[in-house]
Design a binder for these strands. Sequence first.
DNA 1: TTTTAAATTAACCATTTGGTTAAATCAAAA
DNA 2: TTTTGATTTAACCAAATGGTTAATTTAAAA
Lengths: 195, 195
Amino acid sequence: MKDINTETKILEAARTVFISKGMDGARMQEIADEAGINKALLHYYYRSKDQLFRAVFQSVFAGFFQAIKGELDKETPIEQKAETIVMQYTNMLDANPFVPQFLINEINRNPQTLRDVMDSQQFNPSVFLEIFGNNNKSGIDPRQFIVSIIGMMVFPYAARNLVQLIYFNDNIEAYTQFLQERKEFLKQTILKMIQ
Amino acid sequence: MKDINTETKILEAARTVFISKGMDGARMQEIADEAGINKALLHYYYRSKDQLFRAVFQSVFAGFFQAIKGELDKETPIEQKAETIVMQYTNMLDANPFVPQFLINEINRNPQTLRDVMDSQQFNPSVFLEIFGNNNKSGIDPRQFIVSIIGMMVFPYAARNLVQLIYFNDNIEAYTQFLQERKEFLKQTILKMIQ
DNA sequence: TTTTAAATTAACCATTTGGTTAAATCAAAA
DNA sequence: TTTTGATTTAACCAAATGGTTAATTTAAAA
């Protein structure tokens, strides 16, 4: 029982490779190299590529929704909630810029995976709707609202290489600054939306 | 010189499969089956999977930006432009819901591909910025504005399976209606943003 | 120290997959 | 009709890839 963390080490390596390359693009050998172990060890701890992938997906999915859940249960005014959700989400994206793209891709590739994960874990999606529930002053549809906010936040990370090249002439620093300034822009935009 | 359209038939089959599965997930055999021909014919017309993929990517990319270019050169007021861009874009998304996700994925997988395509075709991205250029009344940053609009429009299509399950309990009809209502919502939101 | 079971590895295997080749077919020109 | 060149196919090939196995190492228990 040498290194008790081998299983964790594998999971982290798999997370890195799967998020970067996706299920189809990932190679078991690359995951083994990333973890610094023999390829057979992957199958020793996780029986197959599919099971290893499922473990990663479940972990990423859970961490994703935990990261953005945050302080939203409080009875704060909707303006404050908007501020909180933007900061919570963008902080998560700065730390995990490829996670949303990974989740979207793999859910599209095999939608059943998400259903399985949501069945195994208890997860109540309605909490996001209740935050901006029907009892908001503006009468705005909370679903349209939430989808808009997430779309505005996620897109510049998911499509970074595209936007960076087309609108910023591949200038990385300029795009980083754009993302930084965007936080304030998003807050103001959300406030305008619920006016 | 039997069927002069074999090459086109291959390209269309490849487009279908590549957009659905991506470069990594696509199989030459599946493309051949989709086109109703022998696998060797793919290599007869396009030397390799990579070249076939490039032909598809170039075609999809060009078609994408052509579809959304639309009437935007006119000297119409910004409110009218917003209306036009939303209708143009959502119509394109209704017809090609997986195209943006495909482009984003493949550009992330190999950013060089986009540079090559943009070099080979003449393509001026600044046209989108000039539409909502600095001479708008609100003083809004046109880049932040454009990225927001595209994000709001693309996200519910790219993440359809995710959003449909979490917020609409996998009810396809309800989600279709949501997308339909969203067009009007987006117009109003854009107007609020530039107030 | 010896034993035992878990952990780790090198070598190997079967299948998939992109790609090739030589033969067959077809359609038009001579 | 014969010829010629493009088109199409069946069969095949080599490399990549997920997975297995038998042997070795390690670390703790007896």
